[in-house]
Structures are given as C-alpha cells and as structure tokens.
Computed example of a mutant assay.
Amino acid sequence: MTVDVQWAADALLTAYRTRQPISPIAARFADAPLSTAYEIALAQVESWVKDGDVVKGHKVGLASRAIQRQMNVDQPDFGHLTAEMFHLEHQPIPADTFIQPRIEPEVAFVLAKPLRGPGVTVAEAAAAVDFCLPALEIVDSRIQDWQIGIFDTVADNASSGGVVLGSRPVRLADVDLRLAGCTLHVNGELIATGAGGAVLGSPLNALVWLANTVGPLGVTLEPGHVVLPGSMTKAVPIAPGDAVVADIAGVGSVTAVLAGKEDR
C-alpha cells in the first residue's frame, strides 16, 4: 500500500469516526487510475473487519442515468456492505450515524449461490438469486458538501451509509423488475418516482455487472449476501425525524425512520 493510499484511507476512516467531512481527495490522485480509489476503499473495509465488523454484501452505485446526472459521473461503481450498516425497518436509526444522508429506493437481491466473474451471464445471475426484498439505501458522503467525482465516491466505499430491508421476500420469477414502478414518499409527501428499467435496463443487469467487476479483484458474491443493484430514482436528502416509504410494484414496501430529537 502506498503512502498516498494509506493517507486517504486514514482520512476517510477519521471522517467516519468523527462525523466530520473532509475535502475532496481526488486532486492528490490526479494521474492515478480508478483502481487506486478501490484500493483506498478496500483498505477501509479491511480496517472495519479487523475491528470486528463483517462484510454482508455489496452495492452498485451510480447505476441509473438520474443518479449519474445528479452526481456528475458517467459510470457505475461498487462498495461493500457491512453488518453495522444494516438497520431494522420501522426502528429509529440514530441520526448521528450519518454526516449528510440521502436515501434511495432499490430492489435488494439475496443470493442462494456464489457468483464470481468474469463471464457471469444474466442467466447465471438469475439462477443465483434466492429472493428479492424492497430496500432503502441511505447513501452518505465523507466528502464535504457532496463535492464528489468518480474517484472520490469510489474511494469512499461508493458513498455507502446504511441499508433498510423490507421483510417480505419475493421470488425473482414472480416479478418483472424492468417494469416495476416505484414511488418514494418522505413524511407522507410523494418525492420521486422511478422504475426498475432505470437501473442499467434492469436491476439484474447491475448484478451481472457487479459479479464481473469484482471477480477479477478476487471477490466472490457469497450465498446469503445482499446485493443492492442501484437506485430507481434520484437520491433524496433526509433529516432527523424523517419517515421514508418506498413502494415497489410487485415487490412490496419498506419504511425507514431517521431518529429525531425526541428519540434520543
């Protein structure tokens, strides 16, 4: 690990710990390939695992054109999901867990079989899925004011923050995820709408992309792991006290509650 990679990983780990964002790091890596940003992210994951956390899955970020336009990037990325990122539906999530949270509705895949690329096909990916769940991903950035390009967000573990899963499993064969419409309500107000087709044409395509991207890095998508394929709408800022409901046709609904002052 180079000195610069260690410096960046330490800076981001400190931001997690203190809840104080840092300035963008990309300028220090102007000539570095994107693989260097993934090295920075993996160094943080290794630190968390060393401290007792456990990898429970992966996420695909920046998978829809809406999110890519919002974040000013032109390609997907991926991050790791650890046990500490998962929160129960309807249960208040401590607001001080995050720095500048936004929320995204997604269809979560839970795997029954391992997937490892390169060369994974849509057929193999579909066969590996045990069931789907409606999900809300809380994305967060350790970079001040979300001033991120692709290098910064990749280094920051794809801006991962938290995950809330619904509790009603649905078989992949029972829903056409390409056509599944989605509504996102915050405090009872309709904030955004979308559909599964916004996610690389289908959320299943995002699973294929992930398996084939992480495989050459020596990573296997494991049975029981959760994969978040990407948001069906734009990312929406949330604040303490907010209640968020995503309803995905054919998949179900999921509710996330960010604790307010009265919950402390």
Results as ranks from 00 to 15, higher is better:
219 V>L: 12
21 P>K: 02
101 P>M: 09
160 S>Y: 01
138 I>S: 07
30 A>F: 03
106 E>G: 03
91 Q>C: 03
205 N>C: 08
62 L>F: 05
209 W>R: 02
136 L>Y: 07
14 T>A: 15
163 V>G: 00
63 A>C: 10
187 N>W: 02
124 E>P: 04
225 H>F: 13
191 I>L: 14
210 L>A: 08
36 T>L: 08
140 D>Y: 02
156 D>K: 01
121 T>G: 08
216 P>H: 07
223 P>M: 11
17 R>V: 03
184 L>I: 01
253 S>R: 09
126 A>S: 12
253 S>F: 00
159 S>W: 02
65 R>Y: 01
221 L>R: 08
233 T>Y: 10
15 A>R: 11
215 G>N: 07
39 E>K: 10
88 L>M: 12
41 A>E: 13
15 A>S: 14
126 A>M: 13
224 G>V: 13
111 L>S: 01
107 V>N: 02
145 D>C: 03
137 E>I: 01
73 V>N: 01
33 P>T: 12
257 V>Q: 06
225 H>N: 15
151 F>M: 04
21 P>I: 04
151 F>T: 08
156 D>N: 09
199 V>N: 12
23 S>E: 15
137 E>P: 00
211 A>D: 07
89 E>G: 09
73 V>Y: 01
175 V>K: 02
215 G>P: 10
167 S>N: 14
69 R>V: 13
54 V>K: 11
56 K>D: 01
242 D>L: 07
92 P>T: 09
108 A>K: 00
205 N>E: 13
241 G>W: 12
122 V>T: 15
159 S>T: 13
35 S>N: 10
155 A>F: 00
44 Q>H: 03
144 Q>R: 14
149 G>N: 14
250 G>W: 03
88 L>P: 08
245 V>W: 04
60 V>R: 02
63 A>P: 10
260 G>L: 09
53 D>F: 03
244 V>D: 03
203 P>T: 13
161 G>W: 06
139 V>Q: 04
198 A>S: 15
242 D>H: 13
23 S>Q: 14
206 A>N: 10
185 H>D: 10
210 L>D: 07
133 L>Y: 07
158 A>I: 05
135 A>Y: 00
164 V>H: 08
4 D>N: 13
107 V>C: 09
